[in-house]
Simulated scan of single mutants.
Amino acid sequence: MKKIILSLFITTLFFACNQQPKVTKATLNEDGDLIGVTTKNQFLQEPFNEWFESGYEDYSLNNEIISKLKPLINNVTIKAFMGTWCSDSQEQTPIFYKVLEATEFNMNNLELIAVDRDKVTPDSLEKGFNIDRVPTFIFYKNNEEIGRFVEYPRETVEADMLKIISGEPYKHSYQE
């Protein structure tokens, strides 16, 4: 009887694991742009490392804002969209990672999706997120969107993030 129960459990576990949605790691399209779910490690590779590393190193964090953000940030998840072809994404994405790392954000709570020039992916990962401009960083608490900043921050990346996450009034650059 124990063997039957164990066999049923293992079979159920096997099928449950195979039902997980498959996440497509970003690949290069015909223009040499990353498309799909990506990570910082991919930006550290040529040719993206040129803009990523300099943008990361050149940015000076506001440590006062970082200290306010740090206790709040791990209560959120983030879905971000960017384009490796886009100058605003090349400017803001390294800064975004620097802020996340300074706040000790759990990177498992970040999904960064690289889109093509039409702001789409072959897997339609952008569907339902109203992505008109990149980068777009969307913040969630309890699976509810609490805010986003679009293309560039109103103040600084960390100041905008603090406003969004703390619940202060915030409108992104294209919101009236």
Rank of each mutant, 00 (worst) to 15 (best):
N143Q: 14
K70I: 00
K98A: 01
I113N: 02
P47V: 03
N142E: 14
D132T: 02
E46G: 03
D118F: 03
L6W: 07
N74H: 09
V76D: 01
D160N: 03
D123M: 11
I78W: 08
T39V: 12
E111L: 07
V23F: 07
R154V: 15
F105H: 08
M107G: 04
K127D: 15
E158W: 05
Y174I: 06
E30N: 13
H172P: 08
D31A: 15
N62R: 04
E91K: 11
L28E: 00
L8E: 00
A26I: 05
F15D: 04
M1V: 15
T121C: 07
S124F: 08
Y59H: 11
E126L: 02
P21A: 03
L162Y: 14
I138C: 10
G128H: 10
N63C: 01
D118N: 10
E176P: 10
I164M: 02
N142I: 02
M82V: 15
V115N: 05
Q19P: 03
I164Y: 01
I165E: 05
E46K: 13
E176A: 10
W51I: 01
Y97L: 02
F52I: 12
N62S: 08
E50D: 09
T136N: 15
I10M: 09
A16C: 13
I165R: 06
K68A: 00
F15C: 06
M1Y: 13
V120L: 07
L34S: 00
P153H: 12
Y97R: 03
A159H: 07
H172E: 15
K119Q: 07
I5P: 06
F43W: 11
Q45G: 02
K98H: 04
I66N: 08
Q175A: 14
M161T: 11
Q92Y: 07
K119M: 11
N63R: 06
E57L: 10
I35M: 05
E111I: 13
K68T: 00
K3Y: 10
F149Q: 06
F81L: 09
E158I: 10
W85M: 04
I165S: 08
D160S: 01
N29M: 04
E53T: 12
K3V: 10
G32R: 00
Q20W: 14
F149E: 06
T93E: 05
V23T: 14
N63T: 08
N142L: 08
V120A: 02
F105S: 07
I5H: 08
N130C: 06
N106S: 11
F137Q: 07
T156C: 03
I66L: 06
L100N: 01
L6E: 12
K141D: 05
D118I: 00
L13D: 02
Q90S: 04
L28V: 04
I10W: 01
S124Q: 13
I113W: 03
L72E: 02
S67E: 14
M107T: 11
E155K: 13
